[in-house]
């Protein structure tokens, strides 16, 4: 897989059109929204099925508990807002969705720091941690718009609580030949023998670019797209440790509580732990700048991933 001349699209654009298609094909979807349907693309569903779309105003807590109630009637409920505002209803997610294991899918857009100009309050750096801490939740992050469509479809087809984090900026499409998403399975986008880069979200394409740069200097890097954060594909991680002897985890999230931390826990429990490095947000909040600039400030770039890979490979020796 090469990263030149890829088309671009925002993962948030997948939600509305995918839901319309699924509903037209016989799904039983209800969408609840908290006044952000234009930005999340949920309004596309409202335009096609207005009677199946409920706005709750800017009141996420009420929206999430009501979503749980709606789900008890057998409806597949999609709760749509921004990632930071989904966090606003944490106890409702716990009591009204996770504990009773209800069929509510939180699809939250504008995740991570790549919301850019809106600054720290709008940048979710803790949502993987929060949603992964909710027992019974499946947590997914798409690497591109094609995978986002596949994740929404998989969520609708699978009973139980899900969280899918999508993003605001237009990012390169990786899966130009169609999605390969399977829940709970890492997708190996590139084989390699010296180091494995485990990534999710927009860091996947950046990790592929890092792997190309590493190859030019003789380091063979495997790239795993860990689209499902929970449940984690422990078998793929074990194989990565065994086959390549070093792991870098790259994510748009706090390193101490996100995918990296969860991978480290899994690796530490194997018979063959290996050195690891973590690319992510380092115990800080964001700031205003263009989305690309914020990623640069945080080191969430192909260069950042490449440097971490070189460091972890050096630690092997």
């Amino acid at each position: 897989m090469t990263t030149t001349n890829l088309p671009a699209a925002a993962t948030r654009e997948a939600l509305g059109p995918t839901l319309v298609r699924l509903q037209q094909n016989g799904a039983n979807i209800v969408v609840v929204d908290a006044d952000l349907g234009k930005s999340t693309s949920a309004r596309t569903f409202r335009d096609a099925f207005p009677e199946r779309f409920f706005t709750f105003g800017v009141a996420e807590q009420n929206m999430i508990s009501a979503a749980g109630g709606l789900a008890t009637l057998g409806h597949t409920v999609i709760a749509s807002t921004f990632a930071v505002f989904a966090e606003h209803a944490f106890d409702q997610l716990r009591m009204s969705v996770a504990q009773p294991k209800l069929n509510v899918k939180v699809v939250a857009s504008h995740g991570g720091v790549s919301t850019g100009e809106d600054g720290a309050s709008a940048q979710s750096v803790e949502d993987y941690a929060l949603f992964s801490s909710l027992v019974n939740f499946t947590v997914c992050v798409p690497a591109d718009v094609v995978e986002a469509e596949a994740m929404v479809a998989a969520a609708v087809a699978t009973p139980g609580p899900w969280y899918i984090r999508t993003g605001r900026p237009k990012i390169p499409v990786i899966y130009t030949d169609g999605p390969r998403f399977q829940v709970g399975k890492a997708d190996m986008l590139r084989e390699g023998t010296d180091v494995t880069i485990v990534a999710c979200g927009l860091l996947v394409e950046r990790s592929l670019r890092a792997a190309e740069a590493l190859e030019a200097s003789g380091i063979s890097a495997r790239v795993l797209n860990m689209g499902t954060i929970r449940p984690l594909d422990v078998a793929a991680l074990e194989a990565a440790a065994k086959d390549t002897g070093a792991i870098v985890v790259a994510e748009e999230h706090l390193t101490h509580s996100g995918l990296g931390a969860m991978c480290a826990q899994a690796i530490a429990a194997t018979t063959q732990p290996v050195p690891m490095e973590f690319v992510g947000v380092q115990s800080r909040y964001g700031e205003s700048a263009t989305w690309d600039e914020v990623l640069e400030i945080m080191g969430l770039t192909a260069d950042g991933v490449e440097a971490a890979a070189r460091k972890v490979v050096a630690r092997k020796r």
Partner: peptide
């Protein structure tokens, strides 16, 4: 809220 969701 939960009851409202059920009724909807």
């Amino acid at each position: 809220s939960f009851g409202l969701g059920i009724r909807l």
